[in-house]
């Protein structure tokens, strides 16, 4: 599904990713753990195609295609989804209008028939109930005045709506209390599927108690320095990043 080879990337002229290699197969959930400044968010933005994140070496192959030459919207319509750490507030665009516009833009790009307003509402309601997103929230401007938990729930609602093949979750646990975390994790787990891969990026092991990964990778200074099964997350929690990084060196 996703093959990243010797990836180097710069932000503001500074190299952040320094030879990152990673492979995620269909049906797998991989966790990327790393301390602040290790390049976690840079990796997620590079995968989503954000401007200003310059790839200086290596490759990213998604379903056999070069991902790096695609625009962010092309990536999305081909099934790449990034649940953002800080979902953006957009005044003046209601949440429902946004969901409809995005869903139909993706469908159009894939040559599929667009869904009419009634159909979108039915689809959204179905997904919204599970994520406890109220009708009132859907009528509000996108993310405006939403609490941290509401924003993250809306991200997962989008993931459920768009049904991506590759979902990247960037610090989805940040700013969530335990109830919200459980709800979000349940939403993510419900989307685990044999034809879907997930990359869960997090600082803490806590989220991985609820979204149990198949593989765990430790990111430090722009490279994967250690890999293992789900138990690696617990080891990290027990020893701390500093010790693991020292051990790996």
């Amino acid at each position: 599904m996703l093959e990243i080879k010797d990836l180097h990337a710069k932000v503001d002229g500074k190299e952040i990713l320094k030879g990152l290699t990673l492979s995620v197969g269909a049906g797998e959930v991989h966790a990327i753990m790393g301390p602040n400044g290790s390049g976690k968010s840079t990796l997620s933005y590079v995968l989503a195609g954000r401007a200003g994140y310059e790839i200086t070496g290596g490759s990213i192959t998604y379903k056999g295609e070069d991902l790096t030459t695609m625009s962010p919207d092309q990536r999305a319509s081909k099934g790449v989804f990034l649940a953002m750490q800080y979902p953006v507030e957009i005044p003046g665009v209601t949440t429902l209008t946004f969901l409809k516009t995005a869903l139909n833009a993706q469908r159009r790009a894939r040559g599929e028939k667009e869904v009419d307003a009634v159909g979108v509402l039915r689809l959204v309601r179905e997904k919204a109930a599970a994520m406890k997103v109220s009708e009132e929230m859907l009528k509000r401007a996108l993310n405006v005045g939403f609490s941290g938990g509401e924003k993250k729930r809306l991200e997962i609602l989008q993931m459920a709506l768009f049904q991506p093949a590759l979902a990247v979750l960037d610090e989805t646990d940040s700013g969530l209390d335990i109830d919200a975390l459980k709800l979000v994790a349940e939403g993510v787990n419900a989307l685990r599927a044999p034809d879907r891969a997930m990359l869960v990026i997090t600082h803490y092991q806590r989220l991985l108690d609820y979204i149990v990964p198949d593989r765990v990778h430790v990111l430090s200074a722009g490279r994967i320095i250690k890999e293992g099964g789900k138990e690696l997350a617990h080891e990290l929690e027990a020893k701390g990043y500093e010790q693991i990084i020292k051990d790996a060196a």
Partner: peptide, 30 residues
């Protein structure tokens, strides 16, 4: 136009021109 908002919309599959129009519409809306 806010670059972050534009990226957010595009990352959801909305092509650049449509995303820009949506943000401009939102700006004028009130």
């Amino acid at each position: 136009l806010d670059a972050e908002s534009l990226f957010y919309l595009r990352s959801r599959g909305i092509p650049e021109a449509e995303a820009r129009a949506l943000l401009m519409r939102a700006f004028i809306g009130d």
